[in-house]
Amino acid sequence: MIIGVPKEIKINEDRVAITPAGVQTFTGAGHKVLIEEKAGLGSGITDEAYVSSGAELVATAAEVFKRADMIMKVKEPLPSEFQLLREGQILFTYLHLAREPELTAALIKNKVTAVAYETIQLDNGVLPLLTPMSKIAGKMAVQVGAHFLEKPYGGKGILLGGVPGVAAADVVIIGAGSVGASALKVAVGMGAQVTIIDQNAERLRYLDDLYGGRINTLVSNQFNIRQSVRYADLLIGAVLVVGAKAPKLVSEEMVKEMKPGSVIVDVSVDQGGSIETIDRVTTHNDPVYIKYNVLHYAVANMPGAVARTSTFALTNATLPYALELANNGFYEAVKNNNALSRGVNTYKGNLTCGAVGESLKKDYMKIADLLG
């Protein structure tokens, strides 16, 4: 199989979909890897490093798309790339189609075989390709929040961990999955007063035992969320429904009750956001906007800011699945791997992810029915 890796064109996206080690793994298995020139520079990977690992450098993204049987990316294709997608081509990347009706339509129209990193799911519910980026985004959410709580950046001028005699900041995390748990770890480590909210009481018991009573845990309901949001200095949205739009758990009225200069970081913005006042996606160049005197951070590709760490963490997770697709072909790989089959979002002009179909109000078919 020919694997193609174009340079990411989303603003401030410096990750790349493969490392030299990944190239060597593919070529060692008899496959060919095409890399667009300078695709890895943002992650500190030179063209020479790719070539020495066995890749062929290609001058343009158009040539990569034209020649490759499988395209590996980090982020979803942008409109300028839609026309490059072709029938039967495998697209392996983060897609987040629940908030991307135009991309969904393009994938269906072009009959692309689209496999989304974020919906590959093991039988136990673990999301192996989403987890490494979730952990990075969760840790970054606290760093970013601490930064924007500083007065020169618009915040109320609070040190997250406080000092002796002065109270630490109140951090509220909604969602106790990979993102929330990672944010919790950093926030506790920095000395903040942390409350974490989730609907899974067993998960909360686990975290309470893990941190020995140093955190507050609350079961998710509107009363508990409202009370917690009201006093939060830093509010982190860390909610995920696999493949679907995030539920709006924090209303506009709740945000209005927050203290001026407080900060919201909604990590679930790439799935539509879990906070009602997150009504736009921002970039690393212009990451925040102010609404009701509260700073809103809504960058959808947070891990892109730490591109080298993210690239290596991501490709460690994606490579085994990509190699399975290359070695066995799409049909056999998906038939024999339940986790991979759950990752298929479009196939032969059909939408195949139920959560996306329900979010976009579009008809969908199960991939098992299409494969026979």
Rank of each mutant, 00 (worst) to 15 (best):
E202Y: 13
K156V: 10
E63A: 15
R205C: 09
G157T: 07
I278F: 03
N124C: 08
F148H: 01
A326K: 06
Y331N: 09
F312S: 05
D14Y: 12
T19R: 12
K256N: 09
E324C: 13
A244L: 12
D270W: 03
G22L: 01
G261M: 04
A116H: 13
G372D: 12
K10C: 06
T19V: 09
V267M: 04
Q227P: 12
A55C: 02
K291T: 02
V265W: 07
A333I: 03
V112E: 02
T27C: 07
A176K: 10
A21W: 01
E63L: 11
G145A: 06
N224H: 14
P79M: 06
S341R: 15
T309D: 10
R308T: 08
I11E: 11
T315I: 06
Y331H: 13
G22Q: 05
A17P: 14
G4N: 13
N285I: 00
G157W: 05
K151Q: 05
L325V: 00
S341W: 11
A55P: 01
Y94W: 12
V126C: 07
Y331P: 10
F65W: 10
M72K: 00
L235I: 01
N216R: 09
L207E: 09
P164S: 03
G212A: 12
K259R: 08
L249S: 10
M1K: 06
A116V: 14
T60W: 08
L234Q: 08
K361L: 12
